[in-house]
């Protein structure tokens, strides 16, 4: 564990807490893409298949349970909670993400570290996470105004993978046999997808103005 990875995990945890806060405090999920939340639930379920077979550390196991539990809870809330579900932007959140799921799974069948059930699903989860934010970014552009908590949620969600890139550089420099090309390339693509959001987020923060994404 290094400081970059810890910072990345904590930033990821903060993004989940900000989202839970927004939904719980405002009893509203307006501006949040259910599609992205469902993709993240798939990412965690596919990635943490080794939850019960490989014990890495208490921290690792607890964080996996937190990410799986929170993503499923958010999807449940947005679908079935009688108050929250009313504020879901159903007509704006129309990204056909099964195309993404199919493409990522196909890629995982071709490109993986080892051709085993667990490794193919692990690679699938890495590719899927790289594109999971797309429905959310599309929804933000369609809905125009971005409330503070939603903006912060997306910001922290993007920042965590940027910390992971620093973690991979650090591990590459300090660990002799460290090579994680699948994670690194996907992580770079994932962070690049946030580039324009980060740009407009920074501008709005500098001008102390509301976050506006160009339609």
């Amino acid at each position: 564990m290094n400081i970059f990875r810890l910072a990345g995990d904590m930033t990821h945890l903060i993004s989940v807490l900000v989202l839970l806060l927004k939904i719980y405090a405002t009893k509203s999920c307006s501006g949040i893409s259910l599609k992205t939340q469902e993709l993240y639930a798939m990412v965690f379920l596919a990635r943490y298949l080794d939850l019960f077979s490989d014990f890495i550390s208490l921290y690792n196991t607890v964080m996996k349970l937190v990410f799986i539990g929170s993503s499923l809870a958010i999807v449940w809330c947005m679908r079935y909670h009688r108050v929250v579900r009313r504020s879901y932007d159903r007509e704006l959140d129309t990204f056909r993400y099964w195309i993404l799921v199919g493409a990522c799974f196909t890629l995982a069948l071709v490109l993986h570290e080892k051709f085993s059930f667990q490794e193919v699903f692990w690679a699938f989860s890495i590719y899927l996470e790289a594109v999971a934010i797309l429905p959310q970014l599309v929804l933000l552009q369609r809905s125009g105004n971005v409330d503070n908590l939603t903006g912060q949620y997306v910001f922290f969600l993007g920042a965590y993978r940027a910390f992971y890139i620093l973690n991979w550089i650090y591990r590459y420099l300090t660990e002799p046999r460290f090579t994680r090309w699948i994670s690194c390339v996907s992580g770079l693509v994932q962070t690049a997808l946030y580039a324009d959001f980060f740009y407009y987020y920074f501008i709005s923060w500098k001008n102390n103005a509301k976050l506006q994404l160009p339609a």
Binding site: R5, D9, H12, R47, D50, D54, I56, N60, M63, K64, F67, E113, K114, E119, W122, Y164, N167, R177, R180, S183
Partner: peptide, 10 residues
């Protein structure tokens, strides 16, 4: 356990 394949990152 095959060390370098067990994914120690989240």
């Amino acid at each position: 356990r095959n060390e370098d394949l067990s994914h120690d990152e989240l």
